[in-house]
Design a protein around this nucleic acid. Structure first.
Lengths: 168, 168
DNA sequence: GCCTATTATTTTAAGCCTAAAATATTTCGC
DNA sequence: GCGAAATATTTTAGGCTTAAAATAATAGGC
């Protein structure tokens, strides 16, 4: 089993092995979920308390910060891995608050371009700095020399899941 | 730096090191979030399509499945790491659907005991089986011999974050 | 040039989630 | 026993999320 990796068909294994792998997979998933929930909850709380802001709003600004000339609105749901309908009210409010602009394209009137304002960029940078510090605080007790290893594992996990989703 | 771990105070490091660690921490967080979002989204989709069910509802049943004699209602928010108010409508619906019962305690009329019904237990077991198979499918391409290592890292990460949250 | 399919976006319906306020009950100091 | 603090739960207000339907505009076949 130790060398079998994913190439061994499930049907070729005995029951005990399969059971053990099921348990390991479930444990990975539960740990992953617990870590994410824990960190996400704390970040959300701080965004709210410190800046009266939400993470989804911050995520939109983070995408636009990297695009000085703005972004086609339809690009946001893809990059943020959320549904398009979801973004409509979030973008609405960011526009109303003056952090971003939304202008229809002249070439294709279905398309809109969203772009950060000067005010938005300033606010974002201030929040991003705190965001980094919060993360540093939350992860301070994890050995720094093992970050890279963990990043590698998570990258591989992400790739494996993506591949599995691609297949059908 | 390689041996410094978390014991080196941030103030004692040079700027480049600190920058590098910030980036590593951010990468860990983004990978963690991406993996969780990816898996969670797919599981949610399948619960919906296959069973017309949601993950929060499944999570409640999963807790009750381990407690043959039921659980004090107030225990659920703690175990599931969600707010109490959140559970009220979820439990309401599970009761309405006949999967669980909710009975006031005779000793303390503030307290309620929730308990899975026979029907609920049957439904849960059927869904849990699929849940395990879905997870196995999604994680099939990740080397089986590295699950334990990843579980260990995630456990440590979770512990580190918990400790950091404890401090103030 | 018209009609259909496609694409971009918004709307709708339903459910999840939190924080904070409200309600109901119990416990405990006195 | 009485009243204040504590505890269990629900309600409320606000925001996020999805899937599916609706709207609007463009592109392409004929």
């Amino acid at each position: 089993m130790a060398l079998a990796k994913e190439s061994t068909p499930v049907s070729a294994r005995n029951g005990a092995d399969q059971e053990a792998e099921y348990r390991a997979q479930t444990r990975v998933w539960l740990r992953l979920l617990a870590c994410t929930t824990l960190i996400e909850g704390e970040l959300r709380r701080r965004f709210r308390d410190e800046f009266d802001f939400t993470m989804p709003r911050f995520d939109v600004l983070a995408q636009l910060d990297r695009e000085p000339s703005g972004l086609v609105l339809g690009e946001l749901p893809k990059r943020l891995m959320v549904s398009a309908g979801n973004l409509t009210p979030i973008v609405d409010r960011l526009v109303a608050d003056g952090y971003i602009t939304r202008t229809p394209s002249n070439l294709d009137r279905r398309v809109q371009i969203v772009c950060m304002t000067v005010e938005g960029r300033k606010t974002f940078r201030r929040m991003a700095k705190s965001h980094g510090a919060w993360l540093a605080e939350l992860l301070a007790d994890f050995p720094a020399d093992r970050f890279d290893g963990l990043i590698g594992e998570l990258d591989e996990l992400k790739g494996a899941v993506r591949d599995a989703l691609q297949k059908p």
